[in-house]
Computed example of a mutant assay.
Amino acid sequence: MGLRRKNRTEERAGAVVTSPMPSARTGDWAVELRGVRRQYGRGAGAVHALAGIDLALPRGSFTAVMGPSGSGKSTFLQCAAGLDRASSGTVHLGGTEITGMSENKLTALRRTRLGFVFQAFNLLPSLTVEQNVVLPMRLAGRRPDRRKAAEILARVGLGDKGGRRPGELSGGQQQRVAIARALITEPDVIFADEPTGALDTTTATEILGLLRSAVDMMGATVVMVTHDPSAAAYADRVLFLADGSIVDRLEHASAAQIAARMTALTAPAYATVAA
């Protein structure tokens, strides 16, 4: 595959920044948000889902996003991935500004340069595993690469399942297919929304190990929204949202440390949060 593992120790040490770094160019980051706000409605009834997000995430890194219910996690992911438009501010993915892109260009970018892994798998039941994996290539107008699909399926432990239908697989196996599909185009970023939410603990551990391996061994960049401290512990860093803002972060933290920080966020000071 074209993705290569790189030594990113120095990058990860200062991975998340909350203000522009003079020595860093926009193209240096996999994900960059500057002054991103998302407001729904107007006047007294307006909801400020994101209240000014400033961050930059390096290529080849794994970031988890957590926060109380209604803190803005889903809105953050949707705006960062171009699935929703920010009310103000700028979003760059892989050095490309997507803020003012037309819907057609955004759709093309998502098909070729982004990967998605969702809690519900979102596989097409009428297609085989292999056909699901190469679907992003077909949608982008590229010739499906069966050899590459076979290689990725082998990487996720499904080398002998290419001809099966999703309905013949377990939930964990279906999520492995979703990860393979996300990797097939060698995307700038993989966005994962509660990827282990529908899985048992053992299977969830396997899936998180695959995402971690995609970062460490293949140079992928993963941004994952999760409510589970054990899942977040697989990440290089955890960002904590409250009231639509990034209020804290942890680097290389344990599940216990992450859980303790989440408990603090649900204390009375953060009891009332934005939708």
Rank of each mutant, 00 (worst) to 15 (best):
M1N: 13
M1R: 11
M1C: 11
G2W: 06
G2L: 13
G2K: 14
L3V: 13
L3S: 15
R5P: 01
R5L: 06
K6S: 15
N7R: 12
R8T: 15
R8L: 14
T9G: 01
T9D: 14
E10H: 12
E10A: 15
A13C: 06
A13Y: 08
A13M: 13
A13N: 11
G14E: 14
A15N: 05
A15R: 08
V17E: 13
V17M: 09
T18E: 06
S19K: 12
S19H: 10
P20W: 05
P20S: 06
P20H: 00
P20V: 04
P20R: 07
M21G: 06
M21R: 14
P22W: 11
P22K: 11
P22Q: 08
S23Y: 13
A24H: 12
T26P: 05
G27T: 11
G27W: 05
D28A: 08
D28L: 08
W29I: 01
A30N: 00
V31K: 07
E32P: 00
E32D: 04
L33T: 03
R34Y: 09
R34T: 13
R37T: 09
Q39S: 06
G43E: 12
G43M: 12
A44F: 07
A44E: 14
V47R: 07
V47S: 13
V47H: 05
A49V: 08
L50N: 06
L50T: 06
I53W: 02
D54K: 07
L55A: 03
A56D: 13
A56S: 14
L57A: 05
L57T: 00
P58A: 04
P58V: 03
S61K: 02
S61R: 01
F62L: 12
F62N: 11
T63W: 02
A64F: 02
M66Q: 06
M66V: 10
G67Q: 07
P68G: 15
P68L: 14
P68N: 11
P68E: 05
S71N: 07
G72R: 06
K73S: 03
S74F: 03
T75R: 10
T75P: 05
F76D: 06
F76W: 02
F76E: 08
L77Y: 04
Q78F: 12
C79W: 02
A81W: 00
G82E: 08
L83A: 07
L83H: 04
L83D: 02
R85N: 01
A86Q: 08
A86D: 03
S88L: 00
T90I: 01
T90Q: 13
H92Q: 10
L93N: 04
G94I: 01
G94F: 01
G95T: 10
G95D: 06
T96E: 13
T96L: 09
E97Y: 06
I98S: 02
T99C: 10
G100C: 11
G100L: 10
G100H: 15
M101F: 09
M101E: 09
S102T: 15
S102R: 15
N104R: 15
N104T: 15
N104L: 15
K105D: 15
K105M: 14
L106N: 07
A108Q: 14
L109E: 01
R110A: 03
R110V: 01
R113Y: 01
R113C: 00
R113D: 08
R113I: 02
G115A: 07
F116K: 04
F116Y: 09
F121V: 09
